[in-house]
Design a protein around this nucleic acid. Sequence first.
DNA 1: TTGTAGGCGTTATCAC
DNA 2: GTGATAACGCCTACAA
Lengths: 332, 332
Amino acid sequence: MAVSIKDIARLAGVSHSTVSRALSCNELVNHETAARIRQIARETGYRPNSIGRSLVTKKTFAIGVVVTTVADPFIAEVVSGIEEVVHDGGYAVFLANSNANPEREIKVVQSFHERRVDGILVMASRVGALYLPLLSELNVPIVLIDNQYPGEFVHSICIDDRTGARLAVNHLIQLGHRRIAYLGDQFGLESDKNRLGGYREALEAAGIACPPELVVNGDGKAPGGRVAMDRLLALRDLPTAVFCYNDMSAVGALRSIYDAGLRVPQDISVAGFDDLPIASYLQPALTTVRQPKIEMGRQAAQMLLDLLAGERVESKIEVQGELIIRASTGPR
Amino acid sequence: MAVSIKDIARLAGVSHSTVSRALSCNELVNHETAARIRQIARETGYRPNSIGRSLVTKKTFAIGVVVTTVADPFIAEVVSGIEEVVHDGGYAVFLANSNANPEREIKVVQSFHERRVDGILVMASRVGALYLPLLSELNVPIVLIDNQYPGEFVHSICIDDRTGARLAVNHLIQLGHRRIAYLGDQFGLESDKNRLGGYREALEAAGIACPPELVVNGDGKAPGGRVAMDRLLALRDLPTAVFCYNDMSAVGALRSIYDAGLRVPQDISVAGFDDLPIASYLQPALTTVRQPKIEMGRQAAQMLLDLLAGERVESKIEVQGELIIRASTGPR
DNA sequence: TTGTAGGCGTTATCAC
DNA sequence: GTGATAACGCCTACAA
């Protein structure tokens, strides 16, 4: 079937070890025989079998990436940053969806382990610190991106949700808004908790009340944002501004507001979080907190590669968001 | 280090072949010893090494997926359909970006081959029929999704771009438009050629002229769509409707139109292609040709799995788009 | 029902 | 410089 090192050895009239050396550009091999061997390898269309190699070297040069779903624009951006660095580092990427299901997340990690990946990257983990016991057993470095399970993990990178949220809400306050709503994600996620926390802190610091009816939950996507905004619009006393968990929630909120016949930002200001590529193309262009998505992917991947190279790494990176003011927020 | 089948054999006082049989639930092994072995495996945290297994079985239960970039909402949707079916079929997914670079695409495919993936899926291939010589050499089944290189390939799935485009353009014609522009993708891509072809056919069938200045090229993304629309708006005689290569191009076109102080659809109607999740949330909601994105991913993956199972498969699937009429198109 | 032996494709350690 | 030989972890005849 596929041509192996032994086939080449036979054709070249040498031993398979010589072929191995010649192909791995080992110096200790006659220049002419090496050239002849490489020539034969080319002619026969030889491609080294990385399975055989991995078995002896105990390196697969593969890393596993777990995401909740790749059909999420934020995640897709981060993954593209990961892919870039991992690929340039000579590694391949296994990708699997957890569907935000903790059991499935663990299953996926274990299947990665069976494939003997050299490292694992998990986005928006629903397991987080629960890995710690597994970790020593697996003996595979894991880096978490935006861990969604309470508690510290060894190696992780995340955005400073709290500060980012304060940035956005302070901006709304400075515009004169006093009745500011928070349109969140599903209950229980760390980043939602922290963005809500930042929102509360900003209001409190400004001496503004935060009545519970102004905090609603969506699902981090447009449909949920729309429904949640519908609830806010059903209030007797409408908010004049809404800070949304993320841009996709804001997209849903905008739809709800338009359908109610209101204008943005004249009637209601809307701010998001993420700064997805679409954000500046929405009508009106969305004010939001930019996350360095691709860069976060790159950094997480680099942290993992450094770990694999045995280098010392910062165990926890926290990046800062940047407020991008566009047209969806205006004075009260 | 990691516990192997031999370690368990030693602990259980049996040979490693017995362990192998017990763990693969082979019937030919004493029930009690099997139970004991499985117990030990559990206690020691044994995880089979799929590398060792693959070497002898010559199956990796991995498939390689090549995309131009995963940070494209259309591609991300298709990939999520692929991942679902592939994962449920017991296979893992290698993901790699080609960055729309033909040389890199070939490199990636070859690296997949070195890893001895059981099959390969390529989205928006820039290589297409050029694979044919490589194919016999690689001896790995390849399925193409939306092949962008001219010519037929063996196994492929694509959308009927021509008919889809006609659907959209006929809709604009029925609304009374006569001056209809085509805002395309980069020059040279098959789907762009075919959507342009469908556009021309629809106009011709209606006896409408198609002056060359009404055909412009974008890049399949919002920035390119915006710039291309700017060019259309610089025309002395403006189009009253624009059919865009895809939804992201339409997103850019909308921005350009708003910035010019015009209204959609009152001044200009805009139609897209894809029906991305965002399409119905744009302002105004985008009229577009729906591609069954997730389903296309599923079908492509299923085709590959069927191929791997040695089943007969249709060599070429062509799916139909569906016109989704929303608010971005209106009477002239 | 179980053990022995061989081999998958590679790298690595020895001698020669 | 080169060739045996062993090893990696697993599966699978074949033998017992």
